[in-house]
Structures are given as C-alpha cells and as structure tokens.
Design a protein around this nucleic acid. Structure first.
Length: 675
RNA sequence: GCUGGCGUAGCUCAAUCGGUAGAGCACCGGUUUUGUAAACCGGCGGUUAGGGGUUCAAUUCCCCUUGCCAGCUCCA
C-alpha cells in the first residue's frame, strides 16, 4: 500500500485507481472539488489514473482554481449543447471548448441563427439539467465504435473529428443525464463530477463562425456563454462587462469630444481639439524622455517610389496592407493609353502594361526603410553607434473592412517608433536601456502589471543560426539583468528576428500588447548598411525596432478605457473649470482663469445663465479634474471653492494662490526619477 | 474579406398592417441670476446613409453601393 500526499498536508491511502476513489470521503465533504491535478495534468475524478500519476501524488482542483474554472466551463458547454439539441432537434454539434473568458459551442442549425429568446429558453433548459445533478461518465471506445455511434446519431462533424484523431490515441466519450435520455459527446475531458456543480452559467451572445475557422466551410451558429465556480464570481464578471461597455472608448470619444470618424476617411480618426491635446501631450512626454535617453528625432516622407519597399521587402511581403497611391497625371496618361478615342478594344497585354505602370508609388506602412536611407546618407563611424532614431510620422496600412475598431485598429496612425542602429556587442545594453525606459513610461501610466513574452525563431526564417543565437541571448540576458520574469513564446518571432512583447493589464483586467523590441539583421543587409569600425574596415550594424506605447491611436483607446475618461491632471484636456454662482462674479471668474492660465494651466470658465447645479453637472460629465466655484463669498475673500473629481468631494475654500500652487504641482508630467 | 445585424435632427431614441416623420438633450432667441449632477417659454433643425426597383403611396418590402456593430479570420 502506498500513500499519495496531497499538498495541503493530507495524505490519501491508495489502493485504487480513480481520484474519486482516492479522495473518497473528502470528495463528498468538499463540494468545491471539480477535478484533480496529477503530474501537471488535470483529470476528472472518474478517470482511472495510471500508476505514474498516482505515485506522483494528486492534488484537488477546486472551483476557484483557474484550471477548475476551465473544467466548469467545458462541462457547461456540454450541458448547453444538450439543452440545444433537446430544444432544436436536427441541430448538429461540432466543437465546444472553454475559452479565456467563458466557453462556446458551435452548432450546425438548419433553421438559421439563434435569437435572444432562444438563449433564454436554452438557459432555462440548462437549469433543469443542472438541477438533475447527473454524474458525468467517461467511457473509452474504439475508433470503430465511436464512428458508428456518431454516424447513428447523424453527427457528421463528430465523424470528421474522429478521423482527425491520430491513430493510437485514446478516444473517449462523455455522457451525462438519466439513462434513456442521456447526452453523449466525443470529448477528451475532463469534466466536473456531476452537472449539479454548474451553479453559475450565463449565455452571453450568438455569432456566426466557420467550421474549423475556414470561410470556405459552412457557417455554424456559435453560442457564447460564461461560467464560474460561484454565482458571486459570475456577478463580478458580468459587472466588469457592464463597466467595459460604459468605458468603451468609442462612446467616451464622442461624449468627451476627443475624436470622430467620417465615411470619407473610413477607419482614419479625426482628433478634435480635446483629443488632439491629449495626443500631443503623450508625444511630448515621450519626446522629453527621448532627449534624456539619447534618442534623436527625425521627420520623414509619406509617399515613396515603390523601389524603397521592394528593397525593404515590404512590397513582396506586406503588399495587401499597403496603399499604393497614384498621381492624377500618371492616371490620366494611362487612361489615355487604354481608352483611346475611336478604338473599340485594347489588347490585353497593353491593359496589363498600363495597370503595371500605375504602380509607381507607395504610402509607407512603417518607418524603418526611411531610417535606413538616413543611415546610409553618409559614411557612419563606430563612434556614432548606438544611433537611436525616433519618428512619430503618420503611417498608413490598409486593414480589411471587418477588422477596424474605433481607435484600437485604424488605417492611419502613428507610433512612438524608433530604431536603434548598433553593433552586435551593444545589443544587450541597448535592450536593457530600452526596458528601463519602457518601465518608466508604464509606471507613469499606472500599469501595475506587465507581462513579457520572448518570441523566438520561427520555422520560416532568414539569417544564420549564429545570428539567431546572439539575438535571442541578448534579449533573454537583458531581461535577466533587469531581474524581470518572462514567458517564452517559441516560434513566434518575426521571420527576420526574435522580439520581446510587453503586455499590460488595464483597470478592467484586460490584456493589451503595447511595447515591443525586435532584433533585425535583415534590413541592414538589404540596405547594405555599413559603418567604419576602429579597424578602418566596413561593418554591418544590427537594427533594433522598438516602440513603447505602440500605436498612439491604440494607446489612446486603451488609455480612455483604462481611466474611464478621468485623465490624470497632466493630460486632461481641461484641468479646471471656473463656474460662477451668478452673474455678479463673471469678472472675478475671468481673472481666476487668467491667473491659472498664466501658470500654464488649461482652464475654462462657465459664466452661462444656468443654475450652479447645471454647470457642475456639465463639468462633471466632461470629467474636469477641478471645478472652481466662485460666488460672492469667493469674490470678497479672493478665494476659490474647488471640487475634486478624483476625491469626489468639495475641498475647503482656499486662496487662489494656494490652489494655483497645488494644481501646478499636480499638473507636472510624471517622472520616476523625481519621485 | 466572410456571416449576420444596423443606419431616422449634432447626440440618445420613437413612428401600429406600407398611408406622407416625432420627443428629450444640444443649438439659437427671450424670461430667470441661481451655492455643488438638468430653471422656464419659444424657435431652428430631416431628400429617413446614397442609388435603383415594386406600389396609387416606401422610414417600412426587394436589389446594389457605402459606413457602422458583433463574430470569424488577421493585427499595432
């Protein structure tokens, strides 16, 4: 008899084979146990464990464990599919996995999409299945039996899935429900012990999705849902979704007059004065840091001869995302060639030539090629390296219609982009310096958590193994030197080099990729970049592509949602608004505003004939950090009565000078080095 | 790009079965001069996204284009 020890100090006697048996009494008592972890894998309590697992020890996985939640969601998908097939006979099942935020199941439903009323009905039906508290049962079957079973049920998609399972791999079925009306699915598991453990499920939306994600395949009906270990957690999650809706940057962008769109320039934002101000301040902040971190800024053209992007490789590799503009002169001349007066048809060959002639110019989608041209403008010395070139120029990328999204995904944008030209030996310290800069910025914006990914060499790549070794090592060593933890994403690097990705979590716990640094040996080769070394010979530099905020448009989207429009004082479009109680204070209000503006603050006055309550309301809706109320009392004592947005309360009335000094302090750009 | 949905005044939204478009806010004018989230009265504002079709009649039904939304796929 051996003993497997559970990490919480309890040990279990071990003559048997499933976790249910191993846990025995505990499972009955501890109703939070949804599965077990053994040898790093999750098993359900009814799966027989092999000897190795058992001797390695098993650990209960509870409903509050992320792995437990995944099991709950997967089981919820089964219950949902069961309910759907009861309510909509003839509907075929396909796949139904757990996801990061919940689960979904894709159905082939001949009668068309599900409606919101259908969702409500399905939820009710699911409730009945949950209440039955029917055990999930696992069964291993032969490939032939599985095929015969699903063929008999008319589940053709399951047949396809079985065909895709490699030979020799076990095929398992999961059943739940009372004998006679039980529901069966082809599934690797694991699942919760019984349906009664699914106490917090919510179906959220319906959507179309293609079978196996391929648009040539039939369109399926997907139902999204989410599930948690307890109703409380589900409520919290739904509240977060509500909050996200309220903070949607597209909604706030309109309400706070930050930006707009117009169908004459789809997916290209117009920044209104308030939004443009924020944008400019973000850029200015980064520029100041650049000065300190040894960057130089350049300004470069928008439109190039297409040969530039042939050299860089963008035209062969990135063509579908590029705008290829044409001059009217060229267009007219080609038109005249192709549609001559009095000629009916033009030979196909000529048409082809004409169209080819139109492709002469390219709007830049990235800055790196222009920076290579600048590098090559004259002979460079090793003494100039590392050379850090920053560029906030606008970029244009054609994005397909379905993917654009507010400011988060646009066709016209700029980045806090820079390229570092350096020697291979300088790479590591440059990467470290960049990471330091990046963290200074992220701290300034109160991103508490930053996840780092090291994306390494993909299958398809250029460059030598020695170059890849050096580049990957430089990135990893730089992280180690700064004592940062990271995750390796094998094979996810760009074809020309490995990269670090920096992901931040916003206030609503959503992850956004912002910064990146990429090592590139390819462009220096393609542009034949050279510097003269101490030995008097020509050497090839390495290029680091890097961005901290990434696209400023996308960052604005994140920033708006992260702050809910309550921008920190140093970026807020309007830092204070002076509101009068009645018309007697207009002059004093203007004087207060003038005084504050003279100190470089952004201040407006509201002397309208509205009641005070209305003015307060308007200022609050615009998220103005300070509302300065001035009435007769304030005029007489030369004070202001501030109301703080962030403290959500009235402050003590105070002399104008006191408030001014305090606001000037608060309006300073954040600097880690100063705090 | 694909699938589905939507597009009515600057904004948020109404308009029965196809019968000739309406409200609140905003804006403008007037009255009110107000102490911490909406004073009152009046006015302006629309080729119902654009184009075509069916019909005696189209915001409403059909087709095309365009933009937006959700999802798929892709991505900063």
């Amino acid at each position: 008899m051996s003993a497997a020890s559970a990490p919480d100090g309890e040990s279990v006697v071990l003559p048997r084979t499933t976790a249910r048996e191993l846990l025995g009494e505990r499972l009955a008592k501890d109703r939070e146990i949804v599965a077990v972890r053994a040898g790093g894998k999750i098993y359900d309590v009814h799966t027989p464990l092999d000897e190795a697992c058992v001797s390695a020890g098993i650990e209960p996985v509870r409903a509050n464990d992320p792995a437990g939640v995944a099991v709950i969601r997967h089981s919820s998908a089964h219950v949902m599919a069961d309910a759907v097939q009861r309510l909509f006979p003839g509907t075929k099942v396909t796949i139904g996995p757990a996801t990061q935020a919940g689960f979904y199941y894709d159905f082939d439903k001949p009668s068309g999409p599900f409606t919101d009323e259908d969702l409500a009905k399905i939820e009710t039906a699911m409730l009945a299945i949950v209440e039955a508290a029917s055990p999930f049962r696992r069964e291993l079957v032969s490939r032939e039996d599985a095929k015969a079973l699903f063929a008999g049920l008319g589940e053709t998609y399951k047949g396809e899935i079985i065909d895709g399972i490699p030979a020799g791999e076990a095929i398992s079925l999961y059943r739940h429900g009372a004998a006679g009306s039980e529901w069966v699915d082809l599934c690797a598991g694991p699942h919760v012990p019984h349906t009664g453990m699914l106490k917090a499920i919510k179906l959220t939306s319906v959507a179309g999705a293609y079978w196996r994600g391929d648009e040539r395949n039939p369109m399926l009906q997907r139902i999204y849902g989410t599930a948690f270990g307890s109703p409380g957690e589900l409520r919290k999650h739904l509240a977060l979704l509500e909050e996200a809706k309220k903070r949607d940057h597209r909604k706030l962008g309109k309400e706070l007059e930050l930006f707009m769109f117009h169908e004459y320039a789809p997916a290209m934002p117009f920044f209104l004065p308030r939004g443009a101000g924020i944008y400019t301040r973000l850029v200015r902040y980064i520029e100041k840091l650049y000065a300190e971190y040894g960057y130089e800024e350049v300004l470069t053209p928008q439109i190039f001869d297409k040969r530039l992007f042939e050299t860089s490789g963008h035209l062969p590799n990135y063509r579908e995302n590029m705008y290829l503009p044409v001059t009217a002169e060229l267009l007219d001349s080609v038109k005249a060639e192709l549609v001559p007066d009095g000629v009916e048809t033009v030979p196909a060959e000529k048409v082809k030539q004409g169209l080819a002639a139109l492709e002469k110019l390219a709007q830049k989608p990235m800055n790196c090629p222009s920076h290579c041209l600048i590098f090559n403008q004259r002979r460079r010395s090793y003494r100039e390296l590392p050379w850090r070139v920053a560029d906030f120029c606008r970029l244009h990328r054609y994005e397909r219609g379905g993917v654009v999204h507010g400011l988060a995904r646009v066709r016209s944008f700029s980045q806090d982009d820079a390229h570092i030209f350096c020697t291979p030996e300088q790479m590591q310290s440059e990467i470290q310096g960049f990471v330091r800069l990046l963290f200074e910025v992220y701290h300034a914006f109160n991103f508490e958590r930053v996840d780092i990914k090291l994306a390494t060499r993909p299958e398809q790549r250029i460059g030598t193994d020695a170059q890849w070794d050096a580049a990957e090592t430089a990135l990893a060593e730089a992280l180690k030197a700064t004592a940062l933890s990271y995750e390796v994403a094998p094979g996810e690097g760009a074809f020309y080099g490995p990269k670090l990705e920096f992901h931040v979590l916003d206030a609503l716990q959503r992850s956004w990729q912002l910064g990146t640094i990429q090592v590139d040996y390819a462009l220096p080769d393609r542009f034949e970049l050279e510097y003269t070394g101490p030995d008097g010979k020509a050497h090839r530099p390495v290029m680091l592509h890097r961005a901290i905020l990434g696209s400023l448009e996308r960052f604005m989207a994140l920033f708006i949602e992260h702050t809910g429009g309550n921008f920190p004082v140093w970026v807020a479009p309007e830092q204070a608004r002076v509101v009068t109680v009645s018309e007697g204070q207009d002059d004093y209000a203007e004087e207060v505003a003038r005084t504050l503006r003279a100190a470089g603050l952004r201040v407006a006055t509201d002397t309208a004939a509205d009641k005070l309550g209305a003015k307060i309301r308007n200022a609050r809706l615009m998220r103005v950090p300070y509302i300065l109320v001035v009435g007769d009392k304030e005029v007489q004592t030369r004070t202001v009565a501030p109301r703080s947005r962030d403290l959500d309360k009235n402050l003590e009335p105070q002399p104008l000078e006191t408030f001014l000094a305090q606001l000037v302090m608060e309006a300073r750009e954040p600097r880690l080095s100063q705090s």
